[in-house]
Amino acid sequence: MSLDPATVRRIARLARIGIDESDLPALQRELNGILGWIEQLNEVDIDGVEPMVGTGHAALRMREDVVTDGDARDAVLSNAPDAAGPYYTVPKVVE
């Protein structure tokens, strides 16, 4: 499989990474280089093989339903680049 410029544009859009048209050829070349190299996995017979899930060491631990956190608005907002009072902000979203 090989990426065309439209696909590179589409994944950049999905990843919300702005790209210029002038970036496209280099990106396309680099990504295709990597993709071509990982094609080698196609030679592995994976019939009947389960995908790796988790670490195999343990199942998920559950915590008790107790409020132990929150009520820390100053910390939560301490690094916000454009807080307004108690809120984070974004450019107006039109629904």
């Binding site: 929150g70 820390a72 910390a75 108690p86």
Partner: peptide, 11 residues
């Protein structure tokens, strides 16, 4: 109050 039921995990 806004952003008071929020942990750093939630944010």
């Amino acid at each position: 109050e806004p952003n008071t039921h929020v942990s750093l995990v939630d944010a």
